[in-house]
Design a protein around this nucleic acid. Sequence first.
DNA 1: CTCATGTAAGTAAGTACTTACTTTTAACTT
DNA 2: AAGTTAAAAGTAAGTACTTACTTACATGAG
Lengths: 278, 278
Amino acid sequence: MSKQAETVRAENPPATPPSTSPVSSSSSGRMAGEERRRQLVAVAMRVFSERGFRGTTTKEIAQAAGVSEGIIFRHFATKEELYTAIIDYKACTGVSHLNQSVAEAIHCSVAEAIQRKDDRAVFEGVALHLMQHHENDTEFLRLLFYSALEGHQLSQIFWDRNVRLMYEFLGAYIRERQHEGVFRPVDPLVVVRAFSGMLIHHSVTNILWDTSRSLLDISNEAAAREFTEILLRGIAADANAATSSATTTTTTTTQPTRRDPSKRGAAALPTGRAKKKK
Amino acid sequence: MSKQAETVRAENPPATPPSTSPVSSSSSGRMAGEERRRQLVAVAMRVFSERGFRGTTTKEIAQAAGVSEGIIFRHFATKEELYTAIIDYKACTGVSHLNQSVAEAIHCSVAEAIQRKDDRAVFEGVALHLMQHHENDTEFLRLLFYSALEGHQLSQIFWDRNVRLMYEFLGAYIRERQHEGVFRPVDPLVVVRAFSGMLIHHSVTNILWDTSRSLLDISNEAAAREFTEILLRGIAADANAATSSATTTTTTTTQPTRRDPSKRGAAALPTGRAKKKK
DNA sequence: CTCATGTAAGTAAGTACTTACTTTTAACTT
DNA sequence: AAGTTAAAAGTAAGTACTTACTTACATGAG
């Protein structure tokens, strides 16, 4: 009897519990391991997004989840590991039930418009989709900014999986349309930065500063329409443009899309389950 | 994690109050009260901008300032009070030695261009000035975002004194140029949001995510030029526009600056000890 | 001398994380 | 179907350390 507790490690066998249905908590608050684990991550995500990593205590998370503090450390060796687990949780939960990031979902949703080369539909679709997502999942943006400020890798991974991806596919589309003479020659990446700046900054402002919309009250639909209008007019080729006009001021042709092939592997999860590493 | 104190950085700008002899820390580390107070705020600002309010300990600040912890509490009753003191410090230090905020300084710098109605100079000036400021004073942006996430009033004050101000004077300029038929009718506030979105998001990206400029490497001058070009083309009136075109979608002429008198009071940060909340 | 400037050593209430122990569950007997 | 049992799920009370803030006392400039 005395050794019993010793064997209980955070070591969690990946095999799903036996065949019998581990349906959600029956009468008491007790849950199956996997279920509790996922609930903890979900709760932690919310609390971390509200107060940041350093500002959140494990006790708060436990209380929010309705369990004792010790339970957290049965599932996660450290608070850090719980934080990092959000990455995988988000990767599997990002949008719908598929394994795709927000950027991938957006890309898919405008794929048809891209093929039709309907510029307005492409940019307006991206804009609306992104801003809608931010509005429905403010946790995400807060988490993104908190982790960036706190210097956590969470931030870089989210960034790469979303913004960076958007740079790639929007940049490619712009470049294509430039070759067709529809868009004037500007560095496509600058254009993407300008556009994503409008979108992200609009969402961030709504979430962080102008929560009561006292400065600017506009629906996501209208905002998407206006931002798109400004951008498309802003990068449209001159009407009377000859083929090789140097246009106005732009120097154009900075380096073409820099991709980083070494970056994207399978879902990065460096969390070794080994004991502490402090 | 620098264990040793980083020695007393002479954080005092040459504009020390000339009235009473300040005895600027001659030989020993001893300072006059006012001087030390200002030094503490300056150091605290840096540390808070790096780790946030909750993530910063008074011990860290003391070490960074090269004094013992107790000194902080001789000058400030609480850690919170030290944080809030940043507001006044920034208000008096914002730009140059004048009492003006960054937005005011920017406004002044393009005042002449506004009178000349040189659109390109106005927007490019604002852009360059703002991005340059962010690059030289990254503390400011980090502090702004941290305090917004942490729900501190610091954020609202900084926001009102800077961004809100920019909305007012840029919005007014755009409205004027619309009446003159140079810009097409769009809600000026939407235009300002689009433009400031490009600028702020560009700075934020450089500071928080793309610190090595691997995604997009562009000088502030070039960025200001490109962003301005996109915006000006984006809001230019149609060349063949009649006077009373119904145009696209905009409602135009929302009321100029709306202020919300019923702002929420200080709610977020619990004073002193964090009491239990069940 | 005097008093503001400074310090070192507290203090009580957190903090992340552990340990010892109890309860529930579900598979395996009989 | 009922009883046995090993282990997972859960808790409460620690541990060693940190945190914001205090207190008692030293020191040097005017």
